[in-house]
């Protein structure tokens, strides 16, 4: 019983971490219809910067948010403006390879500069264990859990309650009609991309005290993020949140019962099943994909 409980707690902790990584990806897909294959690399860059700033300035890693989130927001805007937007009317394969190319370039740039070593951001008290009675968790994990809930809730409120948020949703639902309302659709796309990348920046900072980072870190996370985004229904933020929790649980249970190396097979097995049998996601209506993609 205790074991099951601690597996569940661990799964949920892991799940909320995945949720943070995936939210930006699904937002970007939902609005710009682009699958950002370089999403994980933005996180890796964020973690690298967190490491550098924290170790050089000796400040608490969380404080780097002030710097990293705006920086990644701007990076996102630039990528949308100079790479994605010019290709909007191009063939699908061209769009895919644009972000694939970006991903390869970013990974290898970091490899050239920093090599393939792991860098450990100081844990700064975030690796303290908290005893929940039946299970133990780290302080950093609790922070991530709370933040992921705030992030999903905050994005939801932003998209439904603000003028900008509504304009973003309108663009996603009918690009043509949005233009006819006077919405500058390319600006909306840039802002959305920026927000999506900023979200993964927040994830990067919060993850840093718990996970080492190297040039390949982004890849290992982004593959799971793809699984979550498809499972949650492409473009659906709340869908991605719950899918992330499910994948977290699957990860935690299969990791324990099948061994950590085989859990990947379970996760990707689920992914392939969903892609093939339920491409609109676990919670999505079949129709939804039609006007999303």
């Amino acid at each position: 019983m205790e074991l099951i409980f601690s597996l569940i707690v661990n799964g949920l902790m892991l799940g909320s971490l995945y949720a943070m990584v995936s939210v930006g990806l699904t937002l970007i897909f939902g609005i710009t219809k682009v699958i950002n294959f370089a999403h994980g690399e933005f996180m890796m860059i964020g973690m690298m910067l967190t490491y550098i700033i924290t170790t050089y300035l000796g400040i608490h890693p969380y404080l780097t948010l002030v710097f990293i989130v705006p920086l990644l927001f701007v990076l996102g805007i630039l990528v949308q403006k100079y790479l994605i937007e010019p290709l909007r009317n191009s063939d699908e394969h061209v769009q895919i390879f644009a972000t694939v190319g970006l991903s390869i370039a970013m990974i290898n740039l970091v490899l050239m500069i920093a090599g393939s070593d792991n860098f450990n951001t100081p844990s700064s008290g975030m690796r303290h264990t908290l005893d929940l009675g039946l299970a133990t968790v780290l302080t950093g994990q609790v922070v991530i859990m709370l933040c992921s809930i705030f992030m999903v809730g905050g994005l939801h409120l932003f998209l439904t309650r603000t003028q900008m948020g509504r304009a973003i949703r309108a663009t996603a639902q009918n690009r043509n009609a949005a233009q006819l309302m006077g919405i500058n659709v390319s600006r909306i796309n840039m802002v959305t991309f920026g927000i999506g990348i900023a979200c993964v920046g927040i994830a990067a900072v919060l993850l840093s005290p718990l996970y080492p980072v190297n040039a390949q870190t982004g890849q290992s996370f982004v593959l799971i993020a793809f699984v979550i985004v498809v499972m949650g229904g492409l473009g659906s933020i709340t869908g991605a949140f719950f899918a992330a929790l499910i994948i977290g649980l699957v990860d935690s249970f299969t990791g324990f019962y099948l061994g950590s190396s085989l859990k990947g097979v379970a996760v990707f097995g689920i992914f392939l099943m969903i892609l093939i049998f339920r491409p609109s996601g676990l919670f999505g209506k079949a129709r939804k994909l039609a006007h999303v993609s």
């Binding site: 509504r166 639902q173 009609a177 233009q179 006819l180 659709v185």
Partner: peptide, 30 residues
């Protein structure tokens, strides 16, 4: 298109083209 709207020309498009997953009020707000 968006600047044409700002000049005071609005097109009500063929086949309605509402924002399907928004409420009627949100559509009107847009």
């Amino acid at each position: 298109a968006h600047q044409v709207v700002n000049r005071g020309i609005t097109l009500i498009p063929e086949a309605r083209q509402l924002f399907p997953e928004m409420t009627v009020l949100e559509n009107i707000q847009m």
